[in-house]
């Protein structure tokens, strides 16, 4: 009964945040325009909602789901409450790969400028793949560098933070190195913004997510066993050495797909699993589902807040989530200090 009420409230919040995200923006609209979107009648204003806000909301949902799942898997497999895809260099690696690819595309087609050049010569279907490649390489590099008789997650994070800032600097060098008129897209994308995303950005990333989700549900028993320590997991018949790398790759893929849509959106993967544990979902399946709903809600709210604070100016959703996430990160460290855990 309690579970039902909780689910009802969660879904209600999600729907509400979707509606708010459709309703508010730099162009004034009212609830009737949103309603006309669903009833199929309506004019120019409804077109704005359909063409600009609807894809944006959809993108926010996809990103929220991907990032929070990625964070949940990282935290479970590494048994570390501080794990987050952005801290492991996934976003940095993916950004660098995509910016290099854009640079190559622009170099070979120097005639066009700005948004058009990058999107017409670097087909959007390729971007998730490229991001995936970059994200996985960066994650692999970090794991390689911090391996010494097992992973200490705290060392992983240190390496990840440093590598992320190096990658960010490399990306900056690429962006500035390309001529200035053509860096518009790269800069926009690097800020972790949902500005001007349409369905052509979202759809290429969907199959990857669906495949990952299927795999996660197939590996549900193993995943829930991994919450315990490695010995216990082994004793209930999970081959930790086999399962953990597979799950980590899936997590990195989720994060990279999210990055391929919006650029780096920080800390969603860190905070959402904690929120969903706080509101009382302990079973793995329950946790995954709650995570998806909470993650989507969080990113939608972040995006809506970012673009309604001072329209027409826009704060990228990545910055809003960092503002929310950093204090949570600090709190987790503080609590961890007290308990003296996180070895």
């Amino acid at each position: 009964m309690l579970g039902l009420v909780r689910w009802f409230l969660l879904i209600l919040l999600l729907v509400l945040s979707c509606l708010l995200s459709l309703r508010f923006g730099s162009v004034g609209t009212d609830w009737q325009d949103v309603w006309r979107l669903f009833s199929g009648t309506g004019g120019a204003v409804t077109d704005i909602i359909r063409e600009y806000r609807l894809p944006r909301t959809a993108a926010a949902i996809v990103i929220g789901v991907y990032l929070s799942l990625s964070g949940l898997i990282f935290q479970t497999v590494l048994r570390n409450p501080l794990a987050d895809p952005t801290l492991f260099g996934v976003s940095g690696g993916a950004s660098l790969a995509v910016v290099i690819a854009m640079g190559v595309a622009i170099t070979f087609n120097p005639s066009e400028t700005g948004l058009k050049a990058a999107s017409s010569y670097l087909s959007l279907e390729w971007i998730p793949l490229i991001a995936l490649f970059g994200g996985l390489s960066a994650t692999g590099l970090i794991f390689l560098m911090s391996w010494s008789r097992g992973f200490s997650a705290i060392r992983l994070i240190l390496m990840g933070v440093i590598l992320a800032s190096v990658l960010q600097a490399l990306v900056m060098a690429m962006v500035v190195g390309l001529s200035e008129a053509r860096t518009e897209l790269a800069i926009l994308w690097l800020a972790g913004s949902l500005y001007a995303r349409d369905f052509s950005h979202i759809i290429p990333a969907l199959p990857w997510g669906a495949a990952g989700l299927l795999l996660v549900f197939l590996m549900l028993p193993q995943l829930s066993a991994l919450r315990l320590d490695a010995l216990t997991a082994r004793s209930v018949g999970v081959s930790v050495g086999m399962v953990s790398p597979v799950l980590l790759v899936i997590a990195a893929c989720f994060a990279a797909s999210a990055v391929s849509i919006a650029g780096p959106v920080g800390f969603v993967g860190l905070i959402v699993p904690h929120i969903s544990r706080l509101i009382g979902s302990y079973q793995m399946k329950d946790q995954i589902l709650t995570n998806m709903v909470v993650g989507a809600t969080l990113v939608i709210v972040g995006d809506t807040v970012g673009r309604t604070v001072l329209p027409p100016l826009e704060i990228p959703v990545g910055i809003v989530t960092s503002l929310m996430g950093a204090p949570v990160f600090a709190l987790l460290i503080y609590i961890g200090m007290r308990r003296n855990s996180y070895a």
Partner: peptide
């Protein structure tokens, strides 16, 4: 110290 610093500096 560095983890705490990262949290502060990200914010």
């Amino acid at each position: 110290l560095i983890l705490a610093g990262v949290a502060v500096s990200v914010f």
